[in-house]
């Protein structure tokens, strides 16, 4: 993972190695919903190279800071999703029991 172009801190391209659409598209989503972001997009320069370039331009804040905040947001969302999902599964099993168990009865 490395950071390109550092002359102007408010616009940078980040290269994420060993990553693909999975993370890049999620990051683009959360970055674009940040009011500090004026532009955000990503590209995979070559399909057989495991790397993505994330371009990020902000209204003035350092791009790395905005990216970090977005990652943080994404993590919090994931944690919430995990918590809600586990609770939903728990409620479901308490209520109905596993389908397989019902068949045996």
């Amino acid at each position: 993972m490395e950071q390109g172009t550092v002359e102007d801190p408010s616009a940078s391209t980040f290269t994420l190695t060993e990553e693909d659409h999975t993370l890049a598209n999620s990051l683009r989503f959360s970055l674009n919903q940040d009011p500090r972001v004026t532009f955000c997009g990503y590209s995979i320069p070559h399909p057989s190279e495991a790397r993505v370039n994330v371009r990020l331009q902000t209204t003035g804040d350092p791009a790395s800071e905005v990216l970090r905040d977005s990652c943080q947001d994404l993590m919090l969302m994931c944690q919430h999703i995990r918590g809600t999902f586990d609770q939903a599964v728990l409620d479901f099993t308490n209520e109905k029991g596993l389908e397989d168990m019902d068949i045996k009865k």
Binding site: M1, L67, R68, C71, C78
Partner: peptide, 24 residues
């Protein structure tokens, strides 16, 4: 399957965390 999904969410969290540690 329910464990698989929770693990998948954890992996996305790990990916974010990796970027955060790399940036700071």
């Amino acid at each position: 399957p329910e464990v698989l999904f929770t693990e998948a969410v954890k992996i996305l969290e790990d990916k974010c965390e990796r970027v955060i540690t790399e940036l700071s």
